[in-house]
Design a protein around this nucleic acid. Structure first.
Length: 217
DNA sequence: GCGACAG
DNA sequence: ATCTTGTCGC
């Protein structure tokens, strides 16, 4: 396992490859939702990569990787815990991944390099993060309706958007990862959310990784 | 120094 | 993250 100082250096090196376009990018026909479920009291875990059709929100393909983590959970270093498992799951897909939807943050991170940015630059794929709870930054509550959103601001910079995916539910925290701008990420999050607060790709990845871990142990 | 801290 | 079902409410 690498040290925290080494992990910081890896983040600095990978951040040099980061590309955040200021113009909108085309929405791909499919996206890949990602999540990891851990076994209680051990370092065994299952990562799931779920391909979702953007037009219908239907699950097109599920791939998973069961293994062990070698890095503890450290806020700000989540990528070092989850990226090896997630990349292994992504490599098992037969569908070509076009855009990664991660459970966590991208640029809304203490060093502007969360899990979504890490995975995106490593695989050179468009990526962004959807988190369920705040981490860095301040924000005003978004309006009450589906699609309402507000800026997530850290150190004077807009690092993400707080997005209401359903009327009357807690918002989610969206930030760009790599090769996609924040406005696209926020709009896509609303498009990818149907009946639930969590957008379908990461919601299905959560469900699948749980189910596979349950059957695997 | 103290508390807070994605999953 | 994880331990966990039903239940209240829109």
């Amino acid at each position: 396992m690498i040290s925290q100082d080494e992990a910081f250096r890896v983040q600095d090196e990978l951040r040099a490859r980061l590309v955040i376009p200021s113009e909108p990018v085309a929405v791909p026909p499919t996206v890949v939702g990602l999540d990891v479920t851990y076994e209680v009291g051990s370092d065994r875990a299952v990562a799931a990569a779920v391909v979702v059709d953007v037009a219908t929100l239907a699950v097109v393909e599920v791939a998973a990787f069961a293994g062990t983590t070698d890095f503890p959970y450290v806020p700000g270093l989540l990528a070092f815990r989850e990226v090896p498992l997630l990349t292994a799951a992504i490599e098992r897909l037969t569908t070509t991944p076009e855009l990664l939807v991660c459970d966590g943050y991208g640029l809304a991170h203490p060093r502007r390099f969360g899990l979504a940015s890490h995975l995106g630059t490593l695989l050179d794929l468009p990526s962004y993060g959807v988190a369920k709870t705040p981490y860095v930054g301040t924000f005003d509550p978004p309006g009450p309706g589906r699609g309402d959103s507000s800026d997530l601001i850290d150190s004077g910079a807009v690092v993400g958007r707080v997005v209401r995916t359903r009327e009357g539910v807690k918002p989610v925290f969206v930030s760009a990862g790599h090769r996609v701008g924040l406005a696209d990420c926020a709009a896509l999050t609303v498009r990818l959310s149907g009946r639930y607060r969590i957008p379908e790709p990461t919601r299905q990845a959560d469900i699948e990784s749980r189910r596979i871990l349950r059957e695997w142990q």
